[in-house]
Simulated scan of single mutants.
Amino acid sequence: MALNMEVGSMHFYDEIEPFCRWKRTEDIDILELHLPSGLKKEHLKIQINNSGILTITGGCPVDQNKSIRFRKETKVAKNCRRNEIRAKFSKGVLYVTMPKTNPIAAGPLDALKRVTSHSKVDDDMRNSPNCVGEFHSKFASLRQRLWRKRVVEGVAAMVVVAGAVVGVVKAYQYFMASPV
């Protein structure tokens, strides 16, 4: 949470991480940014720099002393036609459409590297939570649970491998110790 001192009053900013989803095909990339309710088109700013970094920023007031804001940066594909990038804001979701050049013209190696993912947007995700902090806490807890799951799975895999190594060593010792 950031703090901004203004003439005798304090103003708080809550930094949020909006939920993002990519839809990629051979000829177009679409970034969906699910934003909290209360955010309007006028609150958003979208820029792309010469290095191909797309920056989306925005914020909205929650009450007299508190606002939320966010910043999302992503690198666009090398074969993206930057001058044809378009954005549409509808029902709390920002759709950034990035057309690509012909995959054959981009070169065979770039075509091989491209990954296509098709996903269906949850109807629940279209109903964005309110501006207060519910949005941030909902996805922060999801991120923590997913991270915890990866850690537990990694530790479990290490335990299995360690058990297998110990078993192999014990079997070797057993057969080496037995008389022939």
Rank of each mutant, 00 (worst) to 15 (best):
I104N: 02
N79L: 08
A140V: 01
Y13R: 06
F19G: 01
L94E: 02
K100S: 04
K113D: 07
R150P: 06
P108V: 08
K120E: 13
H43S: 13
E6K: 14
G163V: 07
C80F: 02
V155R: 10
K120T: 14
Q144R: 14
G107R: 02
G8M: 02
L35N: 06
H118Q: 14
V180P: 04
S119P: 03
V160E: 05
M10L: 15
K78G: 12
N79S: 14
K91M: 11
D110E: 14
V62Y: 05
K75P: 06
R71P: 06
I56F: 04
S141L: 12
N130L: 11
L146W: 00
I16N: 01
E84D: 15
Q64M: 02
K88R: 09
R69H: 09
A77V: 05
R150V: 03
P179A: 01
Y174R: 14
A106V: 06
W22V: 01
P99V: 05
F175R: 09
K120W: 06
S51E: 15
A2N: 13
L39V: 15
S117M: 09
P179C: 05
V159T: 05
P108C: 05
G58W: 02
V180L: 11
N83D: 15
F175L: 15
S37Y: 01
D27Y: 11
I53D: 13
R24A: 06
V115R: 14
V96A: 01
K170D: 05
P179W: 03
S141D: 09
R81Y: 03
F89A: 05
H11Y: 09
V152G: 07
Q47G: 03
S119H: 10
D123R: 12
S67F: 00
Q144I: 01
A87H: 11
S117A: 12
E153P: 00
F139R: 03
N50Y: 09
W147Q: 14
S37C: 02
E17L: 09
G92P: 02
H34D: 04
D122T: 11
V152S: 10
D124I: 09
V152P: 01
V152Y: 11
K91N: 15
L109A: 07
A2P: 08
N102V: 01
C131S: 12
V132T: 08
V121D: 04
H118F: 13
S37W: 01
L94P: 05
E15Y: 07
W147A: 10
K113V: 00
V159D: 07
P103S: 05
H34Y: 11
S119T: 15
V161N: 07
A140E: 13
R81D: 11
F89W: 09
R148F: 14
K138N: 11
L39W: 07
P129R: 08
V93E: 03
G107H: 02
C80V: 13
H136N: 09
P36R: 02
R148D: 13
K75F: 07
N79Y: 07
G92D: 01
G38A: 05
F19T: 07
K149M: 04
E6A: 10
